[in-house]
Structure formats: C-alpha cells, structure tokens
C-alpha cells in the first residue's frame, strides 16, 4: 500500500502573511521501503518538516497523509497506533538519551508503552534490539554517559525500532559523529531497511551521506523545495543552481583536488531583506535577472521523476553545467 505525505499544497502562497513561514508549499511522498533524503542547510526548515510529521508542530496550512489517512493532527490527538508507526531520531546523541536512565529503561519504555510488556519479556526485547543495532546485550545496564557518541546514536535507533515503526524520521542523525562511525551507522540503516522494510525520511546537509543511502532526494532552500528526483538524477546534471553550489562545497575524499570554489555568500545578515520570489536568487551564481526576484520560479520537469524549480529550463541548465 503506497503511503504519501503531501505537505502543504503548492498553491499555499504566503505573500499575505505578515512573516514568511519557515516552510512554504512543500510537497513530497515516501513509498514503503524507500528512503527520501531531504537536503538543506541549517535554517532551511528541515527540522520543522520533521516536527510537523511527528505532530509536534501544527502546520498553518496543508495536509499530511499516512497510509491513506489524514494525520494533520497534533500528537495528543493521534492514535497510539499512528504514533507507534512514525518514530523520530534526532541529531544530537548526547541530548536524546535521558542521562539519568539506564539503557534498559530508555529502550524498554517504548516497548512497555506500545506493547504493554514488562519484566522478563521486556528485557528480552531490549536485548534483541541492542543486538539489532550491533551492541552487546550487556549494555542494557549501562548509563548513557558510559557510551561514545556512535554508541549513543545506536541506542537512539534501537529506541525508535522498539516501537516497530513503518516510517523513521532521521533528523541529521550522522552529523554529530566521526566519519568512521558514520560509515558503520549507514551500514546499519541499510540493513534495517532491507530487513524490516522501513521507510526513511532522512534529513541531512551532507550530500555524500545522502548519495550513499537515499533512493530519492528533495533539496530544500529556505523553506522551499528547489529540486526533487531520484538519487542518480539529482546527483548528475542538470542541477538546480543551489544543488550545484552544494556539490561544489563538498569535501572530496581525495587529495590534489582544487579547493572547493568559493561559494557565493549573498546576503549573510539574514532576516534584513524580504525574501525574493526565488529564495536562492541573492546567492545564485546563475541568476537570470530581476525576474528571479519578482516571479516565483516554475517547476520544470526533466524526467518523469526529476523536477527542478528554476527560471532556467532544465535542458539549458544541463548545457551550462556539462563539464
């Protein structure tokens, strides 16, 4: 059964509102067993979207649909079953585990809460989950402070899995970790998806990570989507100019490459000027002219699954960006 989460209809023009909302007219969907990566910098509204899907923030407008059912509800009004099926993992493993609880309690709580098991059975569940995330079952007696950052993030994953969810919302879950630890967790996420048929909404500013995990990618800039497509499509020309900038900023895992070209900085003192029709216009290296400031750019379809929101048509972008 396909699942979709259209978020805020694209017709949601917000010019009349006194302040620009953090996220405007964003729509996307995720199929079962699929990983959608949402790419963007801090302040792009990625976390706002995650929190809206988790029911922690109420959208001003728009709809969230899960398994064909409208879930545009705050968390208090959602059914327990729904809350169980959507689980959240957050960025900072130091802050996401209660420092006063042992791991059996941290991981055991969702088991107790959703499945009403306790005692021996709950403990067995905790041990299994710890093994699923490749930690020793004996870890259940430890405190979070005894663990390294990577281990804590594995515990956070185990806690989310304890609810046996269908959709995992992962908000920048790798960015606080060492590269060598990231690699291990990426492998774990892949194994989990294969084994449990999970869907991921994977939020990251790191294109490298996205490339190795995602099936589809949506690029977000200051609260608006600017490119959506399959991972291969997004990672090869034509790019949205912002995606192009992100690519050039990527550290390359090989020496002898030139330093990334300086990324246009544009207006760094944000919040001073009004956001133009295309939010990326002030930093855009391929800005066409005043049309970018005045007219919201249209979506142009590159393929059935790949769309770019820019005044420059996809074909022309491809020509400009061919190396």
């Amino acid at each position: 059964m396909p699942r979709g989460y259209p978020e805020r209809p694209q017709t949601g023009e917000s010019d009349q509102l006194p302040a620009k909302p953090a996220v405007r007219g964003v729509s996307f969907s995720i199929s079962p067993g699929e990983t959608l990566a949402l790419v963007g910098e801090s302040g792009s509204g990625k976390s706002t979207i995650v929190r809206a899907i988790a029911g922690l923030l109420a959208p001003t407008r728009g709809r969230l649909v899960f398994d064909g059912q409208d879930i545009t509800l705050p968390v208090e009004r959602r059914t327990k079953e729904l809350r169980r099926q959507i689980q959240l993992i957050l960025q900072n493993p130091d802050a996401s585990l209660n420092p006063r609880h042992r791991l059996w309690r941290i991981i055991g709580r969702p088991i107790e809460f959703f499945f009403r098991t306790s005692g021996r059975e709950q403990q067995r569940g905790v041990a299994e989950l710890l093994e699923t995330v490749q930690l020793d079952a004996g870890y259940m007696w430890r405190m979070p402070s005894d663990l390294s950052g990577g281990e804590r993030q594995r515990v956070a994953i185990a806690r989310a899995l304890a609810a046996r969810p269908k959709l995992l919302l992962c908000d920048e879950i790798l960015s606080a970790l060492d590269v060598s630890v990231q690699a291990g967790i990426l492998n774990l996420l892949r194994a989990l998806q294969a084994g449990h048929g999970l869907s991921f909404l994977f939020i990251s500013h790191d294109l490298a990570v996205v490339r190795s995990l995602a099936h589809r990618v949506a690029v977000l800039y200051q609260g608006e989507l600017c490119e959506v497509g399959g991972v291969r499509e997004v990672f090869s020309p034509p790019f949205h100019p912002y995606t192009e900038v992100l690519f050039r900023a990527q550290p390359v895992p090989a020496p002898g490459e030139d330093l990334p070209t300086d990324v246009p900085s544009g207006s760094e003192l944000e919040g001073e000027e009004a956001v133009p029709a295309c939010p990326f216009a002030p930093r855009c290296p391929r800005k066409v002219g005043s049309i970018c400031d005045r007219v919201p750019p249209p979506w142009s379809t590159v393929s059935a699954t790949h769309a770019i929101r820019c005044h420059i048509p996809g074909g022309e972008l491809a020509k400009l960006q061919a190396i």
Partner: peptide, 8 residues
C-alpha cells in the same frame, strides 16, 4: 557547520 559554510 553546513557544508557550504565549511567550504567557505
């Protein structure tokens, strides 16, 4: 920091 900020 963000990748673009890091690059800068």
């Amino acid at each position: 920091l963000d990748v673009t900020t890091q690059a800068r």
